[in-house]
């Protein structure tokens, strides 16, 4: 339990550094360090599927962030109504912490989950699907509807990115076609 808390503190420090530091490259490195800590936490809680996905997606996002966005000049609004902004931030963080405290008190203890549906999966999952990886049997067997929804979300987002970002604007292309016709 102690090493779990240590890694959790490491993740929190990495996240704070990623938000606060000025240099963009250092910020990206801090984000990936926090992700690595999260991956180790998943491994220690005995969830290797989630750990593999976390590590792989973290690497992909790191490459995308460094190659595609690191040299952009990002506009920051430093001056202005700092008192108003700070007040609003403090009020919203206070509201969030209050609601989160009330909600988290209702949850069961850490390490002793509610076993209503999961006990059925653990008992019957292997006999019903013949898959030795129980995560896979839940993802593609019992909960295949959720996987279909997730796949649809990914498909739609990729199509949207391909439509929005392109080399030439639609106006240019249409003008060129018009000239070709005449």
């Amino acid at each position: 339990m102690l090493e779990l808390h240590l890694i959790l503190i490491f993740v929190i420090i990495g996240a704070i550094i990623a938000v606060e530091i000025k240099d963009l490259l250092s910020s990206v490195v801090a984000v990936s360090a926090a992700g690595l800590g999260l991956c180790i936490i998943f491994l220690m809680l005995k969830a290797p599927d989630v750990a593999i996905t976390q590590l792989v997606v973290e690497i992909f996002l790191l490459v995308i962030l460094i190659r595609a966005t690191i040299r952009r000049d990002l506009p920051f609004s430093v001056s202005g109504r700092w008192f108003f902004n700070t007040l609003i931030t403090v009020v919203f963080i206070g509201m969030f912490l209050t609601v989160a405290f009330i909600c988290l008190k209702q949850l069961p203890e850490f390490g002793s989950p509610l076993m209503r549906v999961s006990s059925f999966y653990l008992k019957e999952g292997f006999d019903k699907t013949q898959a030795t990886n129980l995560i896979s049997s839940i993802l593609l067997g019992f909960r295949a509807y959720d996987t279909l929804g997730e796949a649809t979300i990914l498909f739609t987002s990729v199509i949207a990115v391909l439509v929005v970002i392109r080399k030439k604007g639609r106006k240019e292309v249409m003008e060129k076609e018009d000239k070709d016709e005449f």
Binding site: A68, T69, T129, S137, G141, T147, L154, L162, I165
Partner: peptide, 26 residues
């Protein structure tokens, strides 16, 4: 395990080409 390997292959094709398309476009 029945249809699970086929579903895995389908999801893998979709995820691989989709993520690489996003990277290429960016």
């Amino acid at each position: 395990a029945g249809t699970m390997p086929l579903s895995n292959i389908a999801i893998a094709i979709k995820v691989a080409s989709g993520l690489f398309a996003i990277f290429l476009v960016l």
